[in-house]
Computed example of a mutant assay.
Amino acid sequence: MQDSIKKQANSLITKYNTNNPFELADYLGFITIITPLDNNISGISQNLKKNIVIYVNSELDYYKKLIVAAHGLGHAILHKETDTIFLEYTNICLQNKYEREADSFAIELLLYNKQSYKYKENVINKTSAKERLNLSMLNFKFPHSY
């Protein structure tokens, strides 16, 4: 499944020449709304009568908004028939298949073309800090790097 998710992310990036989840959502005709949400909700992905709506909590900083939007985009593409709420982006709360797949999509999108062989433990930690991604999410892309 990981290879399929990577192919889907790479295909979108190649087709639209961007890995920005907000731009991709716009190209795909999805509606992205940045709005205040409850403190423990980072984002919501909804399918409303064939319209995909991705809500992102306006209280998040820019990088967290990117992560939440990428995660929501993953749900919108991989799980078209479901509505999901993304709780606590830094702590993968719902460890079900859909959440793992959306996290995997987000990482593939945000770290497009990064090679795992370049990453050692200290570099993974630096990448986590630089890209503002938590280590458990990085494990989807680089499973044996730390």
Rank of each mutant, 00 (worst) to 15 (best):
S58H: 08
S116W: 06
S42D: 15
K7P: 05
I31L: 13
T90H: 11
T127E: 12
I13V: 15
E121M: 09
T35M: 08
I85H: 00
N19A: 08
K6P: 00
L87F: 14
K80H: 05
Y98V: 06
F86Y: 11
A25R: 01
K97Q: 13
L111K: 06
S104W: 07
D3P: 01
K97W: 02
T84Q: 06
V123D: 06
Y119N: 06
V123F: 10
K118F: 12
G74R: 01
N113G: 04
I5D: 02
F22V: 04
I52T: 14
K97H: 09
I33S: 09
T35A: 12
Y98C: 07
Y62V: 13
K15H: 10
N139L: 11
M1W: 10
V123R: 14
I52L: 04
Y119D: 01
L110C: 06
N134R: 06
L37A: 07
S58W: 01
N17I: 10
Y62K: 12
Y27G: 00
Q8V: 13
L12K: 07
D103A: 07
C93E: 10
I34C: 05
E108N: 15
L78D: 04
L60M: 09
N125R: 14
I44E: 06
S128D: 05
G72W: 02
G72Y: 02
I31A: 08
E23C: 00
T32P: 02
L28S: 05
T90L: 10
C93N: 08
M137S: 13
S4D: 13
L133F: 02
F22R: 00
L12E: 07
F105W: 02
A69G: 09
T18Y: 06
L78V: 04
K130I: 13
F105Y: 08
I77P: 00
S45A: 14
T82A: 09
Y63W: 10
Y27K: 15
S136H: 11
I77N: 05
V53S: 01
N134L: 03
S45K: 09
K6D: 09
L133K: 03
K50S: 15
K114L: 15
L94V: 11
A76W: 03
Y55T: 03
A69K: 00
N47V: 01
A106F: 06
T32I: 14
P21S: 07
Q115W: 04
N10M: 06
E59M: 09
G74F: 03
N51T: 14
K64P: 02
S128Q: 02
A129F: 13
H75D: 01
N51Q: 15
N20Y: 05
H79S: 07
Y98E: 14
N134G: 02
F140G: 01
G43E: 00
D26H: 11
A106G: 02
L138Y: 07
G43K: 00
E88Y: 03
N122D: 15
E59L: 11
H71D: 08
N134Y: 06
I107A: 11
N40R: 10
V53Y: 07
Q2V: 11
D83Q: 08
K130L: 12
K114Q: 14
T14S: 12
F142K: 05
N47S: 09
I107C: 09
L66E: 12
A102V: 01
M1H: 13
I85E: 05
L110T: 03
I52V: 13
Q46M: 13
